[in-house]
Amino acid sequence: MSPRVRAFLLAIMHMAALSVLARALWDFQFGGLTANPIEDITRRSGHAALVLLTLSLSATPLRRITGISFFVRMRRPLGLYSFFYAAIHLYIFIGLDYGFDWDLILLEFPKKRFIIAGFLAFIILLALAATSWRRMVLLLGGAWKKIHYSVYPASLLAAAHFVWLTKGDKTRPLIYGGVIALLLAARLVKASKPVGG
């Protein structure tokens, strides 16, 4: 893959990831949010976080299938963008939706499994984002890899969060969950032939 193609792919990735935020700001400014704007931006930010996490998970299998190691370069930025939207998502929930009313939040929290799953997924993403710098990789050595395997449970928790919060027909969240399960399963299959980088 030529450096120009790489730079192009990276630019596409950054633009696509940031477009969700840009679109939301645009819609906020020009009245494109629904009559329930808080619900609307909650949904958008959560969706972006889940999609970006799924894309980040697809980097490793993509390298194995195509043999192009460049895809792995997108894994960290995609994961960080996912964390970025997850943080916005959580802030909207706690700050905008519940107005930092901790009594009310704590009243809801233990009773709703979708909130618990989503919160746990966020905590893991937070830990991963905090240890995502190059320096941390060196500092933590072998432990770094172990810590970052927790992206697997995080992605399953995020998928469960989406399934559990969906009312009625759960086809769509189940498709998302299925894709994530498939990407995780792909890691269990050992490459029969060594693939070049």
Binding site: A35, N36, G99, K112, K167
Partner: peptide, 19 residues
């Protein structure tokens, strides 16, 4: 009486942001 998904203790009036 809570619903597994939504808070039934509070609500948001459409057009308003407070619960």
């Amino acid at each position: 009486v809570d619903h597994p998904r939504w808070s039934q203790a509070t609500e948001r009036r459409i057009g308003d942001l407070r619960r």
